[in-house]
């Protein structure tokens, strides 16, 4: 068993996913199967190998800090499920 039910519950909390009991059971099995396959990469000796985050090496891209032709506040708010005045509305935080 590569991953326990408790692991799945912990990861679901990290990922902000409210899983049902059935989903948790199913994911425990499925993630175990996928990790068993993916875990084959541990067979490879990678001592001294640098990790690659990208295939094409690009360096930091800088630009002048100038406002361009970007979305207006109204356009940015147009898809919001809830708004309060000129801001996104959310449920109580504290």
């Amino acid at each position: 068993m590569l991953i326990s039910r408790e692991d799945v519950e912990h990861v679901a909390a990290l990922a902000r996913l409210a899983l049902t009991d059935e989903e948790t059971d199913k994911l425990t099995v499925e993630l175990g199967q996928i990790l068993e396959h993916a875990g084959k990469i541990s067979e490879i000796d990678t001592a001294g190998v640098e990790p690659s985050a990208h295939a094409i090496k690009v360096t930091n891209v800088l630009r002048a800090d100038k406002v361009g032709d970007e979305l207006s506040q109204e356009e940015a708010l147009a898809n919001a499920p809830d708004r309060e005045d000129d801001a996104f509305g959310v449920p109580k935080i504290v």
Partner: peptide
């Protein structure tokens, strides 16, 4: 997992 996969990616490249 992630660190090893990124190294395998280097080998493939």
């Amino acid at each position: 997992y992630y660190g090893q996969a990124q190294k395998v990616r280097t080998l493939i490249i």
